[in-house]
């Protein structure tokens, strides 16, 4: 029982972030909320889009936008789930009392969220290919992968920041979409234009998609830095 905090300071923020990410992914592995609830929801959204459009040509043309819209809707569920597990039994308070650096919490939760989004987006892409028939053009694969990575990072960072902000609020389920969706509009626009170029669904050349990568990079960088600075005060209030 001898109190000894010599080891506490030895745990690096990166190590703590990794521990938190692993913890979140382990919780998902046990609860399967993303697998059993979010993935079916996202696929159903894609199918419903198909019903609503009822035109193969239009559906193929707008498929990139549909993938990212379905991703955004699913992101909201993933974010709420991520912070519900922290709020349910006072674990977020416990993390704060444990002196876990807010930056570690922010990055750890964002990392776990990004990992879940990658799987989700892969399923959505395959669903779009099956339902709407777009194909990756020669030379478009690199653009597709870079877009995928950067947009996922941006969405995970925004989701974590606003999830932390709303975690302590009553009515957070309705507040979260109101706050998040307008903020992620640049990701929706940038990622959709880039994927359209990669798939050639609107006739744009692959090279026309690369400038949008700049927007996604700036977005991810801004929310990475800003979120790391703001997350601590947000969850403390």
């Amino acid at each position: 029982m001898a109190p000894d905090h010599s080891a506490a300071g030895a745990i690096s923020p990166w190590r703590l972030a990794w521990l938190i990410a692993l913890k979140d992914l382990r919780i998902e592995a046990r609860s399967r909320v993303v697998v059993y609830q979010v993935l079916p929801f996202a696929v159903i959204v894609m199918v419903m889009f198909g019903f609503a459009l009822d035109d193969d040509g239009i559906a193929q043309r707008v498929a990139p936008g549909l993938i990212w819209l379905a991703t955004l809707f699913s992101l909201l569920v993933v974010v709420q789930r991520s912070f519900a597990v922290e709020a349910a039994d006072g674990a977020l308070d416990a993390l704060r009392v444990a002196g876990v650096d807010a930056v570690s919490i922010f990055l750890g939760k964002a990392l776990a969220m990004a990992a879940q989004l990658v799987v989700l987006e892969l399923v959505l892409f395959v669903t779009a290919v099956v339902l709407y028939g777009p194909r990756v053009r020669p030379g478009g694969l690199a653009l597709l992968v870079v877009t995928w990575v950067l947009a996922t990072i941006g969405l995970a960072l925004v989701g974590t920041l606003y999830g932390g902000l709303t975690a302590g609020f009553t009515g957070r389920e309705t507040l979260l979409p109101l706050l998040v969706l307008p903020v992620v509009a640049p990701v929706l626009i940038g990622a959709t234009r880039a994927v359209e170029s990669a798939l050639g669904t609107t006739g744009a050349a692959v090279s026309e998609g690369w400038p949008w990568i700049g927007l996604l990079t700036v977005f991810a960088g801004a929310f990475g830095v800003g979120g790391s600075l703001a997350f601590g005060p947000l969850i403390d209030e």
Binding site: V85, A88, G90, V97
Partner: peptide
Amino acid sequence: LGHGNGLYVDL
């Protein structure tokens, strides 16, 4: 140790 236990129920 407050009113909540600070635990993760799925773990």
